[in-house]
Amino acid sequence: MTTSPTRPLVEPRDVPLEEFPASPLGTEGMHVLTADPTPRYGSAVLGVEYARKSGRALHLQVLLPPVRPGSTERFPLVVYVQGSAWFEQRLGQELPALADFTRRGYVVAIVEYRPSTVAPFPAQVRDAGSAVRFLRRNAERFHVDPERVVLWGDSSGGHTTVLAHLTDGDQEYGDEPVDAEPLALRCAIDYYGPSDISRMNEEPSIQDHVGRTSPEGMLIGGVDVLENPELVRPTVAMNHVTSTPRRPPLLVVHGSKDRIVPFGQSVLLVKALQEAGQPVTFYRLEGADHAGPAFWTGDVLDVVDAFIRENL
């Protein structure tokens, strides 16, 4: 049975919101609020494939700041490398905190790298570089200003960040032509990353760092760390520190009671950078363990935010 319309049909017409008529309809007792169209939250583009390597797809989780529909506005890009002891990453681990960070006016892209069980070092550094280059090529799609890019990582992601930062321009650490597509970072942030995997058990820790099945052993192919110095050597951040070229500024933040990556790992890195005359800023987070909410307070993120803005 067909029901005839009670009112004449209105032909669809594509018009902007300001020209679209407000409905004249209503009911008795209806409440009215005035709409405020100001964007308050960003959006997420999940599962963006940026490369295929070692027989698997690698993805980005891209978090956008609040933007009006149809906006062509561009924002600085923060590429975040999630820590995982170089194993399979939980890409949602810091996603809520980073989504909140987008409200400060950044696009944030969380990088999936190949785990050490699939590809040993330097695969993770190469993947971070591939992600940066992909995002630059797709800057318009993700509202990115390709001239303002920052790399930030925690734990093994901090190690990956620092190595990418220090080896920019070295083809050994890039899967794309590095001369044609340099990372050209404005700055980098290292949250409690290892700097010398052969020296981590020189300080108190709650896990082994030298055995062949340890995270560090797996990073270099599932072998004993102390028995394979030739494999360890390129993973050591200080071995890539030179006085020239001048590298972009690095911010290092590390907890004084880190039970996984000893605090001294950051001391080694910062001292080497200082001796080479490279720009570095170091914060000791008193009483903080490895990772956790202490690194995502407003005060700490204010430090990160100010550091980024100073170098954009």
Rank of each mutant, 00 (worst) to 15 (best):
Y80W: 14
R148C: 04
N228A: 12
L251I: 05
V79N: 01
A57N: 14
N228F: 09
F101I: 07
V236A: 03
V178G: 03
Q93E: 15
F282E: 08
T297E: 09
Q207C: 07
T235G: 02
V144W: 00
P16N: 08
S195A: 11
A306Q: 06
G105Q: 08
R90Y: 11
V32T: 14
D208W: 04
A22Q: 10
P16D: 11
A291D: 10
I206L: 14
G157N: 08
R126V: 15
G26K: 05
V118A: 14
L46P: 10
A99H: 09
A272I: 14
T117N: 01
T213R: 13
T34G: 08
A119T: 10
S266W: 02
V32E: 11
P245Q: 05
E176S: 11
F87T: 05
L46D: 15
G287F: 04
F101E: 01
V67L: 08
L312Q: 06
V125F: 13
V303M: 11
E275Q: 15
L231F: 11
V178H: 07
V125A: 02
D224Y: 04
A294N: 09
I206F: 07
E147A: 13
L268T: 09
G105I: 12
E310P: 00
T117A: 06
V232H: 12
A131I: 03
R284G: 01
V67W: 05
G153E: 10
T160V: 14
A131R: 04
G222C: 15
A119M: 09
Q171V: 03
T213H: 15
E176Q: 13
T38G: 07
T102R: 05
Y283T: 12
D196V: 01
D258T: 01
R259T: 11
F75K: 01
G255T: 06
M30T: 13
P21N: 07
L269P: 02
R233W: 15
E172D: 11
